[in-house]
Design a protein around this nucleic acid. Sequence first.
DNA 1: ATAATTGGTTTGTATTAAAAACTGGTTTTT
DNA 2: AAAAACCAGTTTTTAATACAAACCAATTAT
Lengths: 102, 102
Amino acid sequence: MSSKQVNQIHNSINRVVHEPVRLAILKILTSAKEVDFNFLLTTLGLTKGNLATHISKLEMAGFIEVKKEFRGKIPHTSYRITRTGRHQFQKYWKNMKALAPE
Amino acid sequence: MSSKQVNQIHNSINRVVHEPVRLAILKILTSAKEVDFNFLLTTLGLTKGNLATHISKLEMAGFIEVKKEFRGKIPHTSYRITRTGRHQFQKYWKNMKALAPE
DNA sequence: ATAATTGGTTTGTATTAAAAACTGGTTTTT
DNA sequence: AAAAACCAGTTTTTAATACAAACCAATTAT
């Protein structure tokens, strides 16, 4: 008779959310209704390529919405968190707390 | 005049601690005084190789202490958290909270 | 004797975070 | 009017690493 694994909390941690840069992005997006590429770039102090890849991951996971428009002649990209994103962010923290001290 | 980056919390996140499996190990080690390889193996449901590499990382970072002994003729390895480990675990969570909702 | 188990370590692979290089334009300088 | 510099990103490359598979050495069971 084999016994079951009961304490595998680490498996409940969503890797898309878990990455620190993406956590920071999601945190920002939960309090601002909308932010743009350059705001994130300067606020987080990332390279453009790095930011772009993190953004893609969040978009592909359905956690953020991307809006592309022209401001005059210049392209402008901005982001919002989706309902799913907000939900998963909450859920992530709920799971993480099981790994916190106390 | 260039402005400074103020919101780079993600850089404060210690990657050695941040990995979910290692978080789980550290969590366990903060409440038990000492645990052994097999306890972690079955509790966490990992492969031996995977556990061994996580253990190494924690040891190299000075976060855990490894004790190797013979129990009769059988080798036995057990682990404790170090003062540094405990401290870094606390610090990690302090930093992480800056990325949490609310 | 041989097979299975224990207690690990070493090696290989696939993913991915991060930076560099590139693209398609626009604005500024000369 | 060209060229240089800049803007707003995307695509490509690289280096690190989580994870599993394979291995190893000794012990216990058949």
